[in-house]
C-alpha cells in the first residue's frame, strides 16, 4: 500500500516542489516590462514581473515616467463581472517570490501620455523600492493578448 501511495504522490510532490521553489538570485529584478500602444493624452498601463531574489521583503513605493503627466500604482479587481480599480499606496514584494503585474490585475497607470506609444518602440520608467532603491526599467510597447 505504501508503494502505491508513493507512486501516485510522486508527480504531485514534484509539482508542489516546483511551485514552492524560492528565487534566490540575491537581487530584485524587473522583467518583461511592456505596455500597449496608446495615443497622446490617453491613459496607459505598464506590466512586468518583479522577482525579489533577496532574502528580505521589499516594497514598490512609486513609479515615475517622463512620458506621462502622472504615474500611479493600481490594482484592477474583478468582483463577479464588475471591474474596479484601486490605487495602491505600495505593493509588497515577499522575499524569494515573483509578483506579476498583468492585464486585469496590478499595473502602473500612466496618466495623460505626453506622446503616442507605438508598437515596437521602448520608453523608460523609474521604479522606487523601499530597499532596492531606484531602478530604471525599459518598457517595450507591444500588442499582447491572452491567447491561451
Amino acid at each position: 500500500m505504501k508503494k502505491i501511495i508513493f507512486l501516485v504522490s510522486v508527480p504531485w510532490m514534484l509539482l508542489a516542489a516546483c511551485q514552492a521553489s524560492k528565487i534566490t538570485t540575491g537581487v530584485l529584478e524587473v522583467k518583461d516590462a511592456w505596455a500597449r500602444p496608446a495615443e497622446t493624452g490617453d491613459n496607459g498601463a505598464v506590466y512586468f514581473v518583479i522577482e525579489n531574489g533577496t532574502a528580505q521583503e521589499d516594497m514598490l513605493l512609486s513609479a515615475q515616467a517622463d512620458i506621462a503627466s502622472a504615474t500611479e500604482l493600481h490594482l484592477s479587481e474583478m468582483e463577479g463581472d464588475h471591474v474596479s480599480m484601486h490605487q495602491q499606496e505600495e505593493i509588497v514584494l515577499p522575499a524569494g517570490e515573483a509578483v506579476e503585474f498583468s492585464p486585469g490585475g496590478l499595473h502602473i497607470m500612466l496618466v495623460g501620455l505626453a506622446r503616442d506609444l507605438s508598437n515596437g518602440e521602448t520608453f523608460d520608467i523609474t521604479l522606487v523600492f523601499e530597499h532596492a532603491g531606484e531602478q530604471s526599467v525599459t518598457v517595450t510597447v507591444k500588442d499582447d493578448v491572452n491567447d491561451d
Partner: peptide
C-alpha cells in the same frame, strides 16, 4: 450593466467601475 463613479482620487480625474463582459 453596472457602472459607478468610484470615490477614489486619481490624477486621471475619476475612475469608473463597470461591468467587463
Amino acid at each position: 450593466v453596472f457602472r459607478e463613479i468610484a470615490d477614489e482620487q486619481s490624477a486621471a480625474g475619476y475612475i469608473v467601475n463597470h461591468t467587463a463582459r
